[in-house]
Design a binder for these strands. Structure first.
Lengths: 170, 170, 170, 170
DNA sequence: AATGAATGAGGATTCATTCAT
DNA sequence: GATGAATGAATCCTCATTCAT
């Protein structure tokens, strides 16, 4: 792949993330092309169908989250990650959970990273021993979705997370 | 013919709830008409724009939930309502939180009913005193959205709710 | 025909004249029914097709004009009629010339009345002898249409008619 | 592919002029596409809304008329233009005065051209000094509309114009 | 006779996708 | 590889007309 093709690919992904975040998955591919500064044909050359574009965004997003999570650790790593993620969802209407798109391995890697944070938190005594990874992931997704759809302010975010954290606490 | 029209209205709402639940708000109005067994014009006679139909569904759904909540009470009322709602969301892909639709009073009534359940739970000592209504609502929405998008099984539902309930507990 | 049926017929015609005058022939029959204060079925009982309604309006309008014309006479009868008609067209966006509708006899009667005015004007020496009825009718229709589409003010009406009258003068 | 697009744009305009002239502004955009030999999407790519198409036709028509007028002159320029225009209206059911469409500058340019013809005719003594541009324009529009709606034959056109010309004459 | 609910064809518009340049 | 014009299926919505009550 040529260098400019690679650069276009990134620009398209950036534009798509922004556009779909702002207007939902129903936003038009033309709009993505426009914001990326390329022609519509270029978008379809890189992503043969709209769904491929959505999938690619989600994949990249999950990969970044996994990286983020992997960079954290210690007693409060899980809490920090959780809080940060929710704040981002509430603030930026992130594209978490674009309906109809499945990216098993990416989700898997994120799950692993979160699992590690959980292990460390439990080792440090910050989280109860009988809590398991699936429900932590479930809560993560839930609260992000809730924040996304509800437009919470900072205060409500904090109070809601406080309940969840109390539920996780030893 | 007032009776016929009323019956059609209900059939359209039922059909719409089903169709939009299954395929999301992007499903076509034509599909709703087909499932309701009426012509497309009839749908638009009752709901002049697609949005009116979505709003009507959401309104009815919220009203039913408020009724449900109002029928409960006691130490475990809140927990029961919470659990039931999540189960329903996971099972039926309910239309909670249809984007772009606002039904303030309906939401308000549901909030009141939940607030009452919270009060009783706190009176019974099942829920901590410093928990407030907004975060309870936020958690409710969150976990429903999570269940909706995640396709949880019963076990995961139970474990996730266990964390939330522990967080609410005195 | 029952008395109330007759009354409804008139009310529908009045409403239709107003509605079509305001919004053009593309206005909806429902709107006519609404303004007439009857149900849509009633409109269609009296006028089986929209076109029948348009025709009926035009017929009534032409009949009234013929009456008007017949009530005039003398040296200035034609001029008066001409002026009055144009003023009305400009002011009320009358339904003169609803496309696609033909009402030969009504047009004929109006033509006769105008012909009579012409004859009298020529007898009085106000109008040239070699002017014939068809071009008078043509000018009448033309200037009404022009006024209708152009939204002329009083001054422009006057000046335009002045040219036409000069052209007709002996 | 700029050339192709331009060619299509012209074909669409030609088709639209014909279709709307024949069936009025209510004719369907599909029909225009069909006659132009393009797909419906192509029409909407060039003219995002039906109104844009109508406006474009009118603009082009007025521009052509202004050119026509500008090419004439002398004692009989105004009369020639007038006569030619009416003949065309009667023959081709031109789209003069499409309701709801406003193209001020195009109208302005035509007005200027007609004004110049008027000036020359007055200089040559063919038209009275006290006649002004507005009523000339008004008569022009009127007689075209009349011819349009009335379906005049050549003889009636001539006789009607004769009256108007007599009215303008010195 | 009147009512107004139901019908369904028709029309404007959007948008994912293809393909000639 | 990029461009952007063309395609045409799909969708929302309107409205003349019919018909059960």
């Amino acid at each position: 792949m040529r260098a400019d093709a690679q650069r276009n690919r990134e620009r398209i992904l950036d534009a798509a993330e922004e556009v779909f975040a702002r207007h939902g998955a129903a936003a038009s591919t033309e709009e993505v092309a426009r914001r990326a500064g390329v022609a519509i044909g270029t978008v379809f050359r890189h992503f043969p169908a709209k769904d491929d574009l959505l999938t690619a965004i989600l994949k990249r997003l999950l990969a970044r989250l996994a990286e983020d999570a992997a960079a954290l650790g210690g007693a409060d790593g899980l809490h920090t990650f959780f809080t940060r993620l929710v704040a981002r969802a509430a603030a930026r209407r992130t594209v978490v959970g674009l309906a109809g798109v499945d990216v098993p391995e990416a989700v898997g890697r994120l799950g692993d990273a979160v699992g590690e944070l959980l292990r460390q938190a439990q080792a440090a005594g910050t989280v109860r021993r009988d809590v398991q990874r699936p429900e932590v992931m479930a809560l993560l997704v839930s609260v992000c979705q809730g924040a996304l759809h509800g437009g919470w302010d900072e205060d409500l975010q904090a109070r809601t997370l406080a309940v969840v954290f109390a539920g996780l606490a030893a």
